[in-house]
C-alpha cells in the first residue's frame, strides 16, 4: 500500500512570557495548522508552554559541522571583546 508521509516540522515552545521560544523536538503533520495541534498534544501536555512555533524542517538552513572550525574560530582570538580583558585598578568604583 502506498504511504502518504506528511512533512517534518520543528517545534519551538515558549515556556512562559519573558522567555524565548526554545526548540523542543520535531513531528510530522500535513500542514501548519495540524502541526500546531500536534505540537500542543505532543509537547505541552503538562503546562510546558504558553506559545508554540512550528517551522517546516526543510526550511531550516544549518551550518556544516565539518566546517565548524572555520565558522567559529574567528571569534576565539578576540579576547578584547570580553570585559575581563581590561585591567582596571580595584580602587576605581562602579566599573
Amino acid at each position: 500500500m502506498e504511504r502518504h508521509e506528511w512533512p517534518l516540522f520543528e517545534v519551538f515552545v515558549r515556556a512562559k512570557r519573558g522567555l524565548n521560544h526554545v526548540h523542543v523536538g520535531s513531528l510530522r503533520a500535513a500542514d501548519h495548522e495540524m502541526a500546531l495541534h500536534h505540537a500542543r498534544d505532543l509537547y505541552t501536555r503538562r503546562n510546558e508552554g504558553v506559545s508554540i512555533w512550528v517551522v517546516r524542517s526543510d526550511a531550516v538552513a544549518a551550518s556544516d559541522p565539518l566546517a565548524k572550525d572555520a565558522m567559529f574560530e574567528p571569534s576565539q582570538d578576540k579576547v578584547y571583546r570580553h570585559p575581563t580583558h581590561y585591567a582596571i585598578p580595584d580602587s576605581v568604583p562602579h566599573i
Binding site: E10, V55, S57, V60, D64, L66
Partner: peptide
C-alpha cells in the same frame, strides 16, 4: 551537511 529528515534542523537549532 547531510539533509536527512530533521538532520539539519536538529543540528542547527
Amino acid at each position: 551537511g547531510r539533509q536527512g529528515a530533521g538532520v539539519a534542523a536538529d543540528q542547527g537549532l
